[in-house]
């Protein structure tokens, strides 16, 4: 029995050239790939590299959906190339593979995600309440909530799909869902000493720009409930501190405190 064959339309393109002002552009090239049992899209990209296009640029490392390197878009949906099984895709039409569209193109399927590292570096790191960590006593109940956030593999699929960054290009004012998760994990940590994280979340990370359309949650390969468990709780903390007049009065008379 003949093996099934998949048709791929893979984006082949070059980065923008700042000197000449040429925008990043490219074209979709068609490739045929025989489908094997258990195959994922990354296998198909490797097949294309091996048989048809050795210069096809695709970033990958672990092939186990844990390093977050092979982020791309498959049929328009942000996905890890190594996690998208071929048997879950319709083979009767071409499978379109393209790079993340929110970040600048480097080549083919590879994009420059360094803006995310700048956002990450700008967030004040964890500041322990007590310097002597031997004295720490942390109960499971207090960290169970933030354990979910530690599953993040920084694939930046949530950043890619977020329309604030993708369509409105508000990288000037919005840190994106990945960093709302990080800010939530820091602000909810019982041993973190900083009491200015909510202010940072509102004024520096721009949480007000998020309109909770939940696309970040839909694409997360680690199934982190980004919107429900990180962004909305942080929005509510912002409300506590900046919008709720009752909380303001309670803080004024000493019946509530920031942290």
């Amino acid at each position: 029995m003949a093996k099934a064959e998949a048709t791929f339309h893979v984006f082949r393109g070059e980065a923008a050239d700042a000197e000449s002002g040429v925008e990043a552009s490219g074209e979709y090239q068609e490739y045929k790939v025989p489908v094997e049992e258990g195959m994922v899209v990354l296998d198909a990209m490797h097949y294309i590299q091996g048989e048809d296009a050795p210069d096809l640029a695709v970033r990958w490392n672990c092939k186990a959906a844990k390093c977050g390197s092979c982020s791309a878009e498959i049929n328009g949906k942000p996905r890890l190339l190594c996690k998208q099984r071929m048997d879950a895709l319709p083979l009767d039409e071409p499978i379109v593979v393209s790079p993340l569209k929110t970040f600048p193109l480097v080549k083919d399927l590879v994009t420059d995600v360094s803006w995310n590292y700048k956002m990450n570096a700008a967030i004040p790191p964890f500041q322990p309440k007590e310097e002597d960590t031997d004295k720490w006593e942390v109960f499971e109940n207090d960290v169970v909530r933030t354990q979910e956030f530690r599953k993040c593999i920084e694939c930046f699929l949530c950043q890619d799909v977020c329309h604030v960054l993708r369509n409105h290009d508000r990288k000037d004012a919005f840190a994106g869902p990945r960093f709302m998760v990080r800010l939530a994990s820091l602000d909810m940590h019982p041993m973190d000493a900083r009491n200015d994280r909510v202010k940072y979340t509102k004024e520096e990370a721009g949480i007000g720009l998020c309109n909770i359309t939940k696309c970040c949650t839909e694409v997360c390969p680690e199934d982190i409930k980004i919107t429900d468990n990180a962004i909305i709780p942080m929005k509510e903390r912002v409300v506590d501190e900046f919008y709720d007049p009752v909380m303001k009065v309670l803080r004024g008379i000493g019946l509530a405190h920031k942290k």
């Binding site: 990043a24 979709y28 049929n75 379109v96």
Partner: peptide
């Protein structure tokens, strides 16, 4: 298939590569 596209052109109404409903 060799259609030249500008990678940033993603903001037009309905612009998507999604082929699901």
């Amino acid at each position: 298939m060799a259609k030249t596209v500008v990678i940033q052109d993603i903001n037009a109404t309905g612009a998507t590569e999604r082929n699901d409903g």
